[in-house]
Write a protein that binds this DNA or RNA. Sequence first.
RNA 1: GGUGCCAUAGCUCAGUAGGUAGAGCAACGGACUGAAAAUCCGUGUGUCCUUGGUUCGAUUCCGAGUGGCACCA
Length: 303
Amino acid sequence: MLKARKYLIVVTGPTAVGKTAFSVRLANHYDTEILSADSRQFYREMRIGTAYPEAEELMAVPHHFIGNLSVTDAYNVSRYENEALDLLELLYAKKDVVVLTGGSGLYIDAVCKGIDELPEHDPALRKTLKEQLKNEGLPAFGKRLQALDPEYYEVVDQNNPNRLLRAMEVCIQTGQTYTSLRKNKARPRPFGMIKIGLNMEREALFRRIGERVDTMMEKSLLEEVNALLPFRGYNALNTVGYKELFSYIDGNMSLEEAVDKIKTNTRRYARRQLTWFKRDAEIQWFNNDDFDAALSYISKRMQ
RNA sequence: GGUGCCAUAGCUCAGUAGGUAGAGCAACGGACUGAAAAUCCGUGUGUCCUUGGUUCGAUUCCGAGUGGCACCA
């Protein structure tokens, strides 16, 4: 007997375009389950501000990587890659198709292509390096990286502290250059991938973003944020919708200003997402409400 | 109705002693390998309200019109 081919249908696109509803429909159609690739919906304490799927949606289709973490948990793409691949193996024992949906491009790529073997960061080392960077400044810190990994220094964005810090970390932790560890080669996966991008006219998308933020405020996002105040130092809370309201709570701006800022930053996030997805030629784009066209494309690809 | 002030980028405004203009915010483009809803880089997008006049040349000066604001009726 022929073994049925396994498929991962990836549904992506800018925030607020309607990925969740689309994916639930898709999963229902294939009688399967959904893996989320939204790096902030992992956190169970962040529901309103991350536009968590509705209760009915969660009941209609089994979801994974939704609310599986606490904001205090340390997490990263590599762990996600491993956990997602393990889970897919389990799911493919009973399903031929699984849906991966979300807007975190790096996380989607980790599942589809894999990322290189690099050491997980050492919090103590990162703290030390951060302080050093602060004290000596970006240029001097960069020069030190240049001494350790001249090749990477040439290509890195030398103004981006996160990039310099990470590279420095890896060099120090491994005693090897960051460059030598970055293979940047896609790994083969035991399933076929069909990538669907959802989009809509920008003006309409931006209108939706504004409305969604207003809805979040009506659903008492401010209360959610207030409850998370003690955890604001955690990376999970360095997120649109949360940081602006922290700033309001600190008295740095009015509530109206904070809400406007959330809308602006969400629009920018959507643009960055589009920039990321645009360069992935495997993505086939559809209008967010064109479910049938997407479905017929998918079934054609599966033949 | 009268008088005064204003009209410049999507918004708030600056400016040009007459040589077609620039800030902030917004917007737009891009980068991206264990922080990624993060982090970083780049870009002025303009009938200077309309119309006559003066001038080699008007967004700038003068007149008229239109719109807005204020005050007086």
